[in-house]
């Protein structure tokens, strides 16, 4: 039945591409989470009146985040080709897509982290200070746990955006379902391949959303 609906689909290649998409999404989500969190913490704490208030650092980080968040992803990939080939040694394949994916998504996530931190009641941070907490303790025991639901829902949104980015990266040969849909599907006029790749991407997105929602709900004790 499935064979007749999707006559041109090479299932081995399809699973291989699915695996590559999942790999790219997972790896880029992991690094985006770490780098975005660090950038978000810096943005938050160096803002005026905050614990590390520092105009220059805050401005520089802000500019970095805004610039990379504003460059359209497809252009960012092209701009980063020299950087990628220096870092990874090639500009093809899933690993070669990672630098662009992370640099494209981390600033976006950093903004979400900043918003999450800004939602925290200032009084709670003040209370921690009044108890003699160090800034490190405030980050670990106040900022991160108190914004956990927002951090999780933020990384869910970012991760889903990254699935879309991997497909775009596919156009320049990153591999994954994007490459498959473009090269095997679109360029060889096989709509069933495009359709199957789309279905698999949708399934990946739904699963991420489902896990993200469940974790957010579990973390929220408000």
């Amino acid at each position: 039945m499935i064979e007749s609906l999707f006559p041109n689909v090479d299932w081995d290649k399809m699973w291989e591409a699915t695996y590559e998409t999942i790999y790219m999404t997972a790896m880029s989500t992991l690094f985006t989470f770490i780098i975005g969190l660090v950038l978000g913490i810096i943005l938050f704490l160096t803002a005026p009146k905050q614990l590390w208030a520092n105009k220059i650092v805050n401005w520089l980080t802000g500019v970095f985040v805004n610039v990379f968040r504003s460059i359209p992803f497809i252009i960012l990939i092209i701009l980063l080709i020299p950087f990628t080939s220096f870092l990874i040694g090639t500009i093809r394949g899933p690993n070669a897509a990672l630098p662009a994916l992370i640099i494209g998504a981390a600033p976006f996530y950093a903004r979400l982290v900043l918003i999450a931190f800004q939602e925290i009641d200032k009084g709670v941070i003040e209370a921690a200070r009044s108890m003699g907490a160090t800034t490190g303790t405030i980050i670990r025991k106040v900022l991160l746990p108190e914004s956990k639901p927002a951090l999780i829902s933020g990384i869910t949104v970012t991760s889903i955006a990254l699935v879309g980015y991997t497909a775009m990266a596919g156009v320049i040969g990153a591999g994954g379902l994007g490459t498959l849909a473009f090269l095997d599907g679109f360029q060889r006029s096989r709509p069933d391949v495009v359709l199957m790749a789309t279905i698999l991407i949708l399934i990946i997105v739904f699963i991420i959303q489902f896990i993200g929602d469940a974790l957010t709900k579990k973390a929220d004790k408000r």
Binding site: D121, V124, A127, S130, M131, K141, P145, E146, A219, K221
Partner: peptide, 18 residues
């Protein structure tokens, strides 16, 4: 260290909801 001996309570309690 000194703040541990001069503690504070607040109008809006400022508890960690988590």
């Amino acid at each position: 260290k000194a703040r541990q001996k001069v503690s504070m309570i607040f109008q809006h309690f400022n508890l960690l909801w988590s």
